[in-house]
């Protein structure tokens, strides 16, 4: 099924998402990968606020290539999600509702997704040039020293993704 969704997702929309759905996402999402997740975890351990409102948010596991002059962002495809598994259940419990990446997730992530009604999407790995065309604004909002791994606030329009794991825990990967 093909569908167009806006972030933040509505609770009833989340419930009806099924593994295998082809979804076009529009709205504000945040990038974070390995190093940013580690910092966010440390931030939470210190009892401090995360650099963006996590409740209802969508994270794109992305470290883009640099933008040329006149470009919003460089190549912008997903990285392997499994490396973030260690940090993800806690973020899900804090209200993270969507993740965009590629590859398999752990049983702990799946359990936390079911518990919190979240969805995991795959973007097409290695299609970074194509995907960059769906990003209409990009701004570094935290951890600038991490370079490509900094947290970016992205505005996306019709970003093509596929539901790999739905809120019931059904998984498209074999």
């Amino acid at each position: 099924m093909e569908r167009y969704l806006k972030v933040p997702f509505q609770p009833e929309e989340l419930k009806t998402m099924k593994a295998g759905d082809f979804v076009y996402i529009t709205g504000t999402i945040y990038t974070a990968r390995d190093a940013a997740h580690k910092r966010m975890e440390e931030t939470l351990q210190r009892g401090e606020e995360l650099p963006f409102p996590i409740d209802g948010s969508v994270i794109y596991y992305l470290g883009p290539s640099p933008a040329r002059e006149g470009q919003v962002i460089g190549s912008a495809g997903p990285t392997t999600s499994g490396r973030m598994d260690k940090y993800t259940p806690r973020l899900l419990d804090l209200g993270l509702k969507g993740m965009i990446g590629k590859g398999k997730r752990s049983a702990e992530v799946r359990d936390a997704m079911i518990r919190n009604g979240a969805v995991y999407f795959a973007a097409i790995g290695g299609a970074g040039a194509l995907l960059s065309k769906c990003i209409t604004a990009s701004e570094i909002i935290a951890y600038e020293d991490l370079g490509t791994e900094a947290i970016r606030k992205l505005t996306v329009k019709d970003l093509p993704v596929i539901v790999v794991m739905d809120p019931e825990g059904n998984c498209l990967y074999k």
Binding site: F22, L62, G63, P64, S65, R68, Q71, G74, S75, A76, G77, T79, I124, G125, G126, A127, G128, A129, L130, S132, K133, T148, P160
Partner: peptide
Amino acid sequence: QILSKLQENLEIAAKDLIPICQDT
């Protein structure tokens, strides 16, 4: 559908000078 997106991705990379993949 995915293979056709990958073909399109190669065309965009060459035409607009965007790396094929962000992991260079």
